[in-house]
């Protein structure tokens, strides 16, 4: 009798455990092309963003996340849902971000992410045009007396895992026949601690990210970031392949932000421009001349909502990365094409 009781107890235990596991692995509705419907249905956009990446996605003084990537999330919510606050931010690590995008945990990935062929071809991410052009370089302490990345032979280099940085660093040192020791860590916070704690001689990263770390650290004048870019790193928002509607929205929201800057539409004047501007380009962009909204399946005033929420691209840049931010970055490559930069918008018509 005892044996029987024990067997049935074991049996019940096993079944309970398997049922619990089953609940976790239950089927999810993941049919392709439905991401946009899902966003509309729940009235909320899940945005995958960085963990404490100053200038891109980091908590501001008031505790809310701020940065140029956060602004893009708000723009998307403003365009699709008419309300920039309807965003759930999901702070993800560099290693997890594409897995979360592929599994549908996040709708849009805006995570200082470089567009690469493998990420589009093999990992099915679909990138819009870049929201920030960056370049890979190194930061070192001034006290080391190194004035060029070519003099970093035998250095220990702090590198972020899950980014393009590991490959950039390897290619750089290998092509010059120099030896180095990598220290690979998963988050900016860990890298910051290791580099500023003296564990590494050089900190490999994109200029914008390095400038963010240096600004957050305080005594910025003790460190130099080499101005030579080793690679071009175009950061762009991404969605998962298979939902054209969402992809087109993301792509044209990015263009709209840039076009608004070129046309002089700002957060302050957008409402007034929408009603009183006589410029046909502005009238079409802001929906006074209808058509753009219908083509994308959005309300005609979508650009008004976007610019009211975050301003134009230039305003967003200055607030998060430019002269009115701790990072103090120049526009550089990120200036409009009319001002010698790479930022352009395809015609919004």
């Amino acid at each position: 009798m005892n044996a029987f009781r024990r067997t049935s107890a074991n049996l019940l235990g096993c079944i309970a455990a398997i049922a619990a596991a089953g609940a976790l692995l239950a089927p999810v509705d993941a049919s392709a092309g439905k991401v946009m419907d899902g966003i509309r249905q729940k009235g909320n956009l899940v945005c995958g963003v960085g963990q404490a990446v100053p200038g891109f996605s980091a908590p501001a003084a008031n505790g809310d996340l701020a940065g140029i990537d956060i602004d893009f999330c708000k723009s998307m919510a403003a365009a699709v849902l008419g309300d920039a606050t309807k965003v759930t931010y999901r702070q993800t690590s560099y290693s997890d971000r594409f897995v979360l995008l592929a599994s549908g945990e996040i709708d849009v990935l805006v995570h200082d992410t470089t567009t690469t062929l493998n990420r589009e071809g093999a990992q099915k991410a679909r990138f819009t045009s870049p929201n920030y052009f960056d370049g890979y370089t190194f930061m070192v302490a001034k006290s080391l007396g190194v004035d060029s990345p070519d003099k970093l032979a035998d250095a220990t280099v702090c590198i972020l895992q899950g980014s393009t940085f590991e490959v950039n660093t390897e290619n750089f040192f290998k092509s010059r026949g120099l030896k180095y020791t990598p220290l690979v860590l998963g988050t900016w916070e860990q890298l910051d601690a290791a580099f500023f704690g003296g564990r590494c001689d050089a900190f490999g990263g994109n200029y914008g990210n390095l400038a963010g770390s240096r600004a957050a650290h305080g005594n910025a004048s003790d460190y130099i970031i080499f101005p030579e870019f080793i690679t071009l790193e175009p950061y762009a928002p991404a969605v998962y392949g298979g939902d054209d509607e969402l992809f087109l929205t993301a792509r044209w929201v990015m263009f709209a932000l840039v076009e608004a800057e070129r046309l002089g539409i700002t957060q302050a004047n957008v409402k007034e421009m929408a009603t009183s501007s006589t410029n046909p380009e502005i009238q079409q962009l802001l929906g006074k001349t209808p058509g753009n909204g219908k083509d994308l399946g959005l309300p005609e005033d979508w650009v008004v909502k976007v610019v009211s929420a975050v301003g134009n691209y230039g305003e967003s840049f200055e607030r998060n990365l430019g002269k009115s931010s701790p990072l103090m970055l120049d526009r550089g490559l990120n200036a409009l094409w009319t001002k010698g930069g790479l930022m352009y918008a395809a015609p919004l018509r």
Binding site: G162, E166, V184
Partner: peptide, 17 residues
């Protein structure tokens, strides 16, 4: 930052998806 199996594997995961 010690390159154990999971650390190396995570890099591999990221490079290949």
């Amino acid at each position: 930052g010690f390159p154990d199996l999971v650390s190396v594997g995570n890099t591999a995961l990221n490079q290949t998806g």
